[in-house]
Design a protein around this nucleic acid. Sequence first.
DNA 1: CTTGTCAAACCTACAGTGTAGAAACTACCG
DNA 2: CGGTAGTTTCTACACTGTAGGTTTGACAAG
Lengths: 212, 212
Amino acid sequence: MARRTQGVSAGLDRGRIAAAAVALIDRDGLEVFGVRRLAQELGVDPMSIYHHVKGKAALLDAVSEAVLAEVAAVPDDDTSPGWEEIARRTAHEYRAMAYRHPRIFPLLVTRAQTSAVAVSALERLVTAMRAAGVPDQAVADAPMVLFGFLNGHLLARTIEEPGAVPAFDAAVYPAMAALTPLMTDFGSTAEFDRMLGTVLDGIRRRAAPDRP
Amino acid sequence: MARRTQGVSAGLDRGRIAAAAVALIDRDGLEVFGVRRLAQELGVDPMSIYHHVKGKAALLDAVSEAVLAEVAAVPDDDTSPGWEEIARRTAHEYRAMAYRHPRIFPLLVTRAQTSAVAVSALERLVTAMRAAGVPDQAVADAPMVLFGFLNGHLLARTIEEPGAVPAFDAAVYPAMAALTPLMTDFGSTAEFDRMLGTVLDGIRRRAAPDRP
DNA sequence: CTTGTCAAACCTACAGTGTAGAAACTACCG
DNA sequence: CGGTAGTTTCTACACTGTAGGTTTGACAAG
């Protein structure tokens, strides 16, 4: 048992701890995740972690913050993309993150998101919408509607096993059963894009209220 | 300490246990909820619960099932409401349930919903849409989009303390800060109705694809 | 070189958890 | 009366988060 000696630094800090925790949860899942396991993975005493993170709740905050930070960079490559394009790209980045960390995503959505990366993503979208002359109320609502949908939808996909198309009893639920052939792309990019498009349609409708 | 004698029935069953658990979580919260507390509330030994429910996970399943069952009855009072009306009513029932049990709702959305009440609600909506001649793909997508939004949006409301309007630093996030006056109805019925309307607009657009 | 201070890591211990396994008790059926 | 089935309780165990105290090395001042 290779024990560390006391007092000598193990190079721990919030970032390294969070990164290790992310990897560990990705591998083994949230249910069995704990301070002791994480410490073992880091080759460190469990209590050492508590010198950098206040408690388990703060540890999970750090994890969700680290994962959310991955989605920060929506590239501003071309010239002022327009708000729909920004929304679409951000949504796809967000989705990619969720699929990269399916066992962490439930953690993300059950915590309030006030971190800098989250807010700055909203700021970018909202700025573009105002620049396009969208009415203020529609602008204010748009990110809430969009991320409401994203969180709920992606949560449903990350909970289930991948490729789990539900089966409905045709005798009791004939309509649902009849539609199951159209749900076989459950979890696919195409399905996501279609539903995202539906939500964006709704937002666009409110963005230009002088259309029928 | 009034102990029960062994062997004599305490009238336990899955339903009573679930109901007590719901009340307990509503009162004290999910974090401190446990088998021992629940047993004490029921005046029963902790292990007695395990004879009716397989484990803690199954117990939480029962809780979420019980809460979801509250939303079962969307009244069919008037004559064939039309799918938009059905969707709107179901959404409001669902929201009311979420606000009745804010500490349980996070549990609901992190579990796959295959229970009878959940599916039959979908069946009703989907049947109405087909009867209205909506294209099949739009029908199949509609409940996923709707409940995706509902779960995500309501989750965000139930996590936060009620009436918590976020404050943004105007120097860093000018657009978000400028819009905060329009977010003061955070969590209100009016806000919900507006955003629900946005999503339904999107669904309606896909339901009638021959409009521009 | 000595001494003091500080931060980082470790060790110990404790209350609390979910739950496996067995024992105790009642009720019913023959 | 005896057996059997069904509930409830008892006991015990491995495990959790974490409070409190101890050890160690690094660095600066005297």
